[in-house]
Computed example of a mutant assay.
Amino acid sequence: MRLIGPVAVAVWLALGSGPAAPRPPSPIPVPVVPATGILDRVPVAALEARLRPADLVFRRGNGLWSGYFAVASGDEGFYSHVGVAVFEGGQWRVVHTEADDRSGIGGVRSDSLAEFLAGARGVAVVRPALNGPQAEATVRLAAAPDWRGIPFDRRFSLDDGGQAMYCTEWVQALVLSATGVDIARPRSRFGGRAIISVDDLRLGPGAVPVLEHRL
């Protein structure tokens, strides 16, 4: 039966004023599910156990520009950022350069491995073709104030004499300056100009894959 007009209003008022008037059901709370990152699948201790000084640590981030950098990275278009593993202050850390997503202002920083991978959707570790003394020289130079003080290159240019550097440029230049070894493939091109892409380092000459996990 369908009630309309004044009759419907009268019935509604009668039901609403009675002692046994039905009440609307309480809303069912919706649980908040935290965003899943790679460290929810792989313990950071398991990753640290595989590291050696001067290893390259890659991540797929979730920042505003991560997808753009992943596409620019080349072959697979997955990883978006890279840094150098160092054992510093009694813990494994990653030295890398990055900038604020919106302002483009940033520089070199040292983060614990857990901080570096927080919220990341993937991680890979690659061991560049360096001998022991070369790896040690790379780690020493990564701690030098001159190298830690280089600002982030928001123009993504290889033609500024190293006055500013983006993440892959900093890693490649660091290893080259410390050892004389160029660990990158021949330069990729993106947007009509030469760049050092993420995969130029990940798939560089003599690079040995150590581990990889993706969501």
Rank of each mutant, 00 (worst) to 15 (best):
residue 205 P to H: 10
residue 14 A to P: 08
residue 124 A to T: 06
residue 54 A to V: 08
residue 133 P to C: 11
residue 194 A to I: 12
residue 170 W to K: 03
residue 56 L to I: 07
residue 56 L to S: 04
residue 11 V to D: 00
residue 133 P to H: 12
residue 59 R to M: 04
residue 213 H to C: 05
residue 174 L to M: 04
residue 75 D to G: 13
residue 99 A to I: 08
residue 158 L to C: 05
residue 79 Y to K: 10
residue 153 D to S: 05
residue 42 V to S: 04
residue 110 S to Y: 09
residue 136 E to T: 14
residue 161 G to N: 10
residue 68 Y to V: 15
residue 55 D to L: 08
residue 37 G to N: 04
residue 142 A to D: 00
residue 125 V to Q: 03
residue 163 Q to H: 12
residue 153 D to Q: 05
residue 106 G to M: 00
residue 69 F to I: 08
residue 151 P to I: 00
residue 16 G to N: 14
residue 83 G to K: 06
residue 114 A to I: 15
residue 129 A to Y: 04
residue 183 I to S: 07
residue 156 F to C: 06
residue 116 F to E: 04
residue 153 D to I: 05
residue 170 W to E: 02
residue 138 T to A: 15
residue 97 T to S: 08
residue 102 R to S: 14
residue 83 G to M: 03
residue 1 M to W: 09
residue 124 A to G: 13
residue 204 G to H: 03
residue 99 A to C: 14
residue 119 G to Q: 03
residue 186 P to I: 05
residue 85 A to M: 11
residue 194 A to R: 15
residue 163 Q to P: 06
residue 74 G to H: 00
residue 11 V to Q: 00
residue 34 P to E: 13
residue 205 P to D: 11
residue 48 E to H: 01
residue 168 T to R: 04
residue 123 V to L: 12
residue 44 V to N: 06
residue 125 V to R: 02
residue 56 L to T: 04
residue 34 P to M: 12
residue 126 V to E: 02
residue 59 R to V: 02
residue 58 F to A: 06
residue 170 W to F: 05
residue 29 P to K: 01
residue 201 L to F: 04
residue 30 V to R: 14
residue 168 T to A: 13
residue 83 G to F: 01
residue 81 H to E: 00
residue 55 D to N: 06
residue 77 G to L: 05
residue 141 L to I: 06
residue 107 G to I: 02
residue 174 L to G: 02
residue 9 V to H: 10
residue 206 G to K: 07
residue 208 V to N: 13
residue 170 W to T: 03
residue 100 D to V: 08
residue 214 R to V: 14
residue 197 S to W: 02
residue 94 V to R: 03
residue 13 L to H: 08
residue 64 L to V: 11
residue 154 R to E: 14
residue 87 F to N: 14
residue 108 V to R: 02
residue 86 V to E: 03
residue 83 G to C: 09
residue 95 V to M: 05
residue 194 A to T: 13
residue 141 L to M: 11
residue 4 I to Y: 09
residue 116 F to K: 08
residue 35 A to E: 15
residue 65 W to Q: 15
